[in-house]
Each structure stands twice: as structure tokens, then as C-alpha cells.
């Protein structure tokens, strides 16, 4: 992907930076400019918990082109301990190891290679805790 687009997301992908609404306390990942809960525009920067659990999951067997060498891979919606949900691959385990409610921990990993030049894109994945 074009480098400005990649660079903009680095605080979220590398460090799990989120925005907490100063008025109602709702946490947004990624950060937003306006709170969808109370319409406030004032936020403070926070870092999300790296511990959480699987809300739901699947195993991808037919993948988009840039992920085709990784199949089959697990992907889940994860609820972190601060209540924030995100989507991430769950790695270092088999499809049959996946289950709703299992505890996971976020880790920093290579996500995909971009384009013919193979530029490496990084971000978060999860492992079973």
C-alpha cells in the first residue's frame, strides 16, 4: 500500500494506541475525531491492554492474493481487557485449538508483503495465552 497510508497507521499497528473520550470514557481503536457515543471531540491518547479473549473466530481457507501463501490461517475478533475489540490473526496454533472465550495475548508480527517489491507490512497478531 502507498507509504503515507501505511505510515499513518503505525501508532495503532505497532503500539496499540487508542483514543479515550474525555467526556464519556469510551475508548476508540483506531482513534476518531468525534465520539459516536456522546459527540464529544476531546480525547486522550491511551495504550490498549495486550491481554484479551476470543469473541468469535474463523479459519480462512480461501484468501486474498497477498495472504494466499498463509492458508489456512485463523482470524478472530478479540476483546481486550479494557473492553476494546479488534480483529487479528491468531497464530502459532492449529484451527482446532480455536474456541470462543479462550484467552489470548497480542504480539508484534509481520502481517503481509506489499506489491511486487515485497515491502513488509507489520502489525499485531494474537497468540493463545
Amino acid at each position: 500500500m502507498p507509504s503515507p497510508r501505511y505510515t499513518r497507521e503505525i501508532p495503532q499497528r505497532y503500539r496499540l494506541e487508542a483514543a479515550k473520550c474525555k467526556k464519556c470514557g469510551k475508548i476508540f481503536f483506531p482513534p476518531r475525531l468525534v465520539c459516536s457515543n456522546c459527540k464529544s471531540r476531546e480525547f486522550e491518547k491511551i495504550t490498549l491492554s495486550e491481554e484479551g479473549k476470543i469473541v468469535t473466530y474463523t479459519t480462512i481457507r480461501v484468501a486474498p492474493e497477498q495472504f494466499s501463501t498463509q492458508v489456512p490461517y485463523n482470524i478472530a475478533i478479540i476483546e481486550l481487557n479494557d473492553g476494546v475489540r479488534l480483529m487479528a490473526q491468531v497464530v502459532d496454533c492449529k484451527p482446532e485449538d480455536m474456541a470462543i472465550g479462550k484467552p489470548v495475548r497480542m504480539v508484534f508480527r509481520k502481517i503481509q508483503e506489499e506489491g511486487a517489491a515485497g515491502i513488509i507490512c507489520y502489525g499485531y497478531k494474537a497468540v493463545l495465552a
Partner: peptide, 23 residues
């Protein structure tokens, strides 16, 4: 940026809904 970047597909999104529905 926050779904497709991680390798999700549309069948995958609906599969996640199905798994929690079954559960």
C-alpha cells in the same frame, strides 16, 4: 485498515457471525 489488513474476507466475516450464532 482494520479488517482487510489482517487477511479477513467476506466469507470470513460471515463465518465469524455463524460461529457465535452456533455457540
Amino acid at each position: 485498515e482494520y479488517e482487510c489488513y489482517h487477511g479477513i474476507t467476506f466469507p470470513g466475516l460471515y463465518a465469524m457471525i455463524a460461529n457465535i450464532y452456533f455457540h
